[in-house]
Structure formats: structure tokens, C-alpha cells
Design a protein around this nucleic acid. Structure first.
Lengths: 334, 334
DNA sequence: TTCAAAAATGTAAGTGCTTACATTTATAAT
DNA sequence: ATTATAAATGTAAGCACTTACATTTTTGAA
């Protein structure tokens, strides 16, 4: 069943059918109704390929994330996908993994499908060396590019991110205000957002007169047990009394460590997580966590993209402030 | 840059270029290399639309899930997406939400894009009344349909699911073997897989001589706190000593309840969760959980789909056995 | 060397749609 | 009634590919 069949059955030319399909105004109300009726009757669906071939668009946005099994990214996908559909855009998803070759391949795949724009979800699409980001620049030369939680300078690249520097800074400051003197920063690896979080942490330490050395900047990306063990080893040589983690899972690792070491939380060890995920209310004690307002981040991205594609001018960088959600791993009046 | 340009630059006809593009065998090695070289040089990407128009396929599988922010579904998406890409299929994702109209709309959208097959992720795509499943039958009349974690009889519908009946049965039996006499079953709502899990649970109770009444079959779909409160209320009137939950989050709710009620886990209350998710090792004590081997479920689905599309005969229903992962919420020798 | 069969290549007709341009029909001002 | 103008419709040429069929070239046995 194609446009020609419809035109036959409704006794008009295919051009008129096409016009009805595209809500063109040069169609009389009478014929429009007639054609629409035939379409309804025949359960006609226009061929998306033929359409895309002419219009060079298929109302599709390419979504890239490293791994949707990361709950944070899974949530982002859901928010974005629903938001886009609200504007009648569909989304083509790629879980690239963490390999930079795959990131590039997926980008090319999406571009070869003529997506109308690309949204890179997560800071780990930004590599530290700028030449490795060539694929992002290349993509941006073809379609608008949005980076969620990462900032990259470049034409046609737009960033929507959480003010992680400020959020970490503020959390670390509270440590000092509450009397903790030996806070540590625990991150997974130095990703773009990891670095920003660290910057805020360091700034607060500096201001409080405790400039952080390497002993205060810990890393572990392994499973929970490994995080736990690493902290235990570290605690032997350089004890700490507060910990800011770059995600809730790491923070839970710290909680596990505290329990094994017999430390009382938050008295002996205050812990602040990041993302305010489901984990933060499932662990024991419940975790104080920085909420970077993912849903708002996503809806902002969608709005920005729509404006962008409508030809409006939009800011290159949109920063959103986070929110600290207090629970039981920080003192009463934190 | 199109196929015509390439044919010009390499001094052959567009048919030959197309043959190279499609790995047709009737091309001499010499010309193939020449054409490939030109393509490389010009950074040529074939137009996916034109291709789809002719071939009526775009090497794309439609993926539907109710919500990728559910970690379980997020993981499934990731596994499937990667698996499919391994066979050079891309995936078009729809997070439908839980509304049945949206499920249908998304299905139609994917079909109008001529996806080569559909994978419905999760049992909640199967409604209890069969007429509400019409959209699934309709989809199956156009492309192969795979349902993950759900079974629906119908031509061109293939199911890949975990043997939840057996898994729940086995877990509940262990309760009795370990001396628990008042187990309860906690589920979110009576979804397809929820019902199966319940069936297994009931069977074990029956066999042990404790046929379960409504007091043993609890439901709560709200947030953690609500689950916790519901259990507390229930415990007043009908105390229980073991609990099987249909997912880890619910199980964590039970743990929270136990803690508040001063019950010792697993002595006073044994708890078994489902999905063996990250939660199960983050909570305290760590959760014994049924692992339904999602990764295997997904890879099986992908293989099945590839065989199916290659014209091979595949079973209508593939059942995979689950695995109980023992941790600290069940007795030593469970 | 010849010639039939096989392999390589080319020609041209689709695929289902959009749209510039041409043509017909309706509208309304003279 | 007669036009000029606007609105509605139709015609046909793309869009970037694939592929059946036709043609040319290569291969190797007689």
C-alpha cells in the first residue's frame, strides 16, 4: 500500500495525497477529508525511507551513552527518549561501551542514518587529549551536537551540565564547618566530570587551610569489595574522617569499609555520595547524596535542542545547580 | 557524495559500485579494490534511506521497554543493543511507559520504520486480557516478535524467559527445609512474571502442607518507605518468618522493616530477593537473590532472532533456569 | 585459433515519496 | 459576461540506491 494506491482509491493525484500527508495548505477541505478517509480505511502508513530520502530527515535524534546498564545513564536515556517523543522525534540509541574506537564508530553509524542531531550522554565522551575528540568536532560539522554533563568548546556543540564544581565545593565546605579535618575525595577515574568534582573539593580544602595532597585524592573503579579494601589499606597509613564520592556506589563502598573497620557513621566518618540514586536510600545508614537533577538536565537538553533546530539562538553552555540531599551519613546539622 | 560520484571517480558504473557496497561476488578483485579506495578517500557513506527504500530493511531491530530507568531493563537494553550490533544490526529504542496506548503507539511507530523485528523487553507487555494483546499479534503479522520474560502463544511470536516458577518454587522450598513455617510472597503487581513467581511459591507452600492464604501474598508497588510500612502493619496481624520478593528493591524494603521492627535477619526473618542486582550487595545485610541471568537471556534472544531471520526453525519458547545467589539474608546452610 | 561458458560490467527500470512548475478550476472585481 | 487573481490539482523530474537483464570481457577446453 503506497501513495499511488491511495491516490487511485481517492481519485486524486499522488501530489495531492502527498500534500495531505504533509499538511500542505493548498488542499481543499473536501479532498483532504476524502484522502484521509481512504488512508484510515486502508490503514496506510507512509514509507519512512522514501520520505527520509527526499526530506533528508527522519525525525530522529541519535543518543549515545557508554552503557545503559549504568542506572544513571539508563535514567537519562528514559528522560531524553520520552522528552523527544513529546516533540515527535524518535531516538536511535547506541551503547558504545568505553572504547574510543566504538564511540567513533557509533557516531558514524548514526550520522550515516541522517539523524537530525546527536546527544552524547555522559562526560566520558570527552577525552582529555583534544585530538581524540576529533570525532565530536566532525559530528558537529554535520548536525547539532549536545553533550550532557560535559563541556567542549566548538561550533555547533552545546553543553548542558550540572555545576559539579560548586556542588562538590559546597559539600566539602560543610565537612570543615562540621568539624571534620581530614576529608578525602573518592572517584572512579579522572573523567571530565570527575575532574570538575575534584576541583570543587580541592578548592574547599584549600580555603579551609588544608590543601589536599595525593593522600586525599583516592581512586578505585573496581567492584564494591575492591573499593572497600582499598579504603581499608589507605586508612592504615592516612586516616580520614570524611569522604566525598563521585557516585553513590563508591559511597556505599565507603560505608561497607566503615562497618568492617568499626567506624561509626557519621561520627567517625561522614560520607557524601553523588547522584541521589536508589542506592542512597537502600544502604544502611541512608546516604547523604548530591542530586544533580538529571531529569531537569534532560528536559533542558530537549528544549534546547528543539530551539536550536527551530533556528533560534541558544547558549553554548547551560549550567544547572545541584542539590544536596541530607540523610544519615552526615551529622545532624550539616 | 553519492554512488554516482564514486562511480565517476573510479571509472566504473554505478551498478559495480553498488555491488562492491553489497559484497556481491561478481566483481573482480582489482575493481573492488579501486572502488573501495575511492570510497575511503572520499569518506563516502551510503545513504541509508535510499538503501532502505530498495531493500525494505535498514538492519534495525525495534526495542521496546517500559522504562530504561528501571536498572533491570536498562541492563537488558545494553546487552541486547551490544549483541545486535555484533551482528551489525542497530536498534531503535522506545521507552513506552506503562500505559497500554503508548505501547501500541510505539509499536506502530517502529513498524512504520520498517524495523526487521521487534523485541519486547519485560513481561508487562503482556496484558492479562487477550484482546489487549492485539497489538502484539498485529506486530507479529508483519515482523518476527520476541518477548523477553513473557510468553504469548501466537504465530511469529517467540518467547525467551527465565524459569521463574521453578526458581521461586525452589527458593520457597528451602525456606521450609530450613525450618521457616510462615513465608510470605511480596510482589509489585500481578504482572506476567509476577504471577509465575507466585505460582512457584504457592506450589512449594502447598507441598509443605502450608497452603498460602491471602495473608501470605502481599503486594506493594510504592517507594521503599511504603513497602516497609505495609509490612509492619501486616506483621501485627499475621507475623511471618520468611519473605520472597519479586525484585531486590522490595526485598530491601523488607530488610528496612526488619531493622525497624528489631527482627534479626536471617534468624527471625529470612529474605530472598530477585534479579541479583547491584542493590543486593549494597544493602545490609547483603541480600540472597535469585539471578535470572539476564545477560544469557539477552544473548539467547539475539541468537534466536538471527537464526529466525536466517530462515531457520527456532523454538517458540525458550526457558532458562535461574540461579540462587546465597548471601547473608538466609541461614548458613540454606 | 575458436568458441561456448563463466565472469565482470553496464544499462535502465524500478523503490515511494516530495516539489517545482504547468494546468485547471474557483473567486470576485470590473 | 469578462478577465485578472488566487486556489486547487496534476505532471513529471528528481532523491540515492538495487537489480533484472543485456552486453562485454575473460577463461580454458577442444
Amino acid at each position: 500500500m503506497n501513495i499511488y494506491d491511495i491516490s487511485q482509491k481517492s481519485g486524486v493525484s499522488i501530489a495531492t495525497v502527498s500534500r495531505v500527508l504533509n499538511n500542505s495548505k493548498n488542499v481543499s477541505e473536501k479532498t483532504r477529508r476524502k484522502v484521509l478517509a481512504v488512508m484510515e480505511e486502508e490503514d496506510y502508513q507512509p514509507n519512512a525511507f522514501a520520505r527520509g530520502l527526499m526530506l533528508n530527515t527522519m525525525q530522529t535524534i541519535g543518543l549515545l551513552c557508554s552503557d545503559s546498564s549504568d542506572p544513571y545513564l539508563g535514567r537519562a536515556i528514559s528522560f531524553l527518549e520520552q522528552g523527544l517523543r513529546g516533540h515527535s522525534y524518535d531516538s536511535l540509541l547506541c551503547c558504545t561501551g568505553y572504547d574510543s574506537i566504538q564511540k567513533e564508530k557509533c557516531t558514524d553509524m548514526l550520522l550515516s542514518r541522517h539523524v537530525d542531531a546527536l546527544i552524547f550522554i555522559g562526560s566520558n565522551f570527552i577525552e582529555r587529549t583534544d585530538d581524540k575528540n576529533a570525532y565530536l568536532y566532525r559530528a558537529a560539522s554535520q548536525v547539532p551536537v549536545i553533550i550532557l554533563n560535559g563541556y567542549l568548546k566548538g561550533t555547533n556543540i552545546y553543553s548542558v551540565l550540572c555545576d559539579d564544581v560548586e556542588a562538590s565545593y559546597s559539600a566539602a565546605r560543610r565537612f570543615f564547618k562540621s568539624g571534620f579535618r581530614h576529608p578525602v575525595f573518592l572517584s572512579r577515574s579522572s573523567s571530565f566530570s570527575g575532574v570538575r568534582k575534584q576541583t570543587g573539593f580541592e578548592k574547599a580544602c584549600q580555603e579551609a587551610g588544608f590543601p589536599p595532597g595525593p593522600d586525599q585524592l583516592l581512586q578505585s573503579s573496581g567492584p564494591l569489595k575492591e573499593v572497600c579494601d582499598m579504603l581499608a589499606r589507605h586508612y592504615q597509613t592516612a586516616p580520614f574522617d570524611a569522604l566525598l564520592a563521585t557516585d553513590d556506589e563508591l559511597a556505599v563502598g565507603a560505608l561497607k569499609f566503615a562497618q568492617k573497620a568499626g567506624l561509626s557513621v557519621p561520627k567517625d566518618l561522614a560520607v557524601v555520595g553523588y547522584n541521589n540514586s536508589l542506592l542512597s536510600i537502600c544502604c544502611e545508614p541512608e546516604l547523604t547524596s548530591i542530586d544533580n537533577r538529571l531529569e531537569y538536565l534532560c528536559s533542558t537538553s530537549v528544549t534546547l535542542l528543539m530551539n536550536l533546530m527551530a533556528g533560534k539562538k541558544v547558549p553554548e553552555k547551560t549550567e544547572i545547580s545541584a542539590e544536596l540531599v541530607l540523610r544519615s551519613t552526615t551529622p545532624e546539622h550539616f
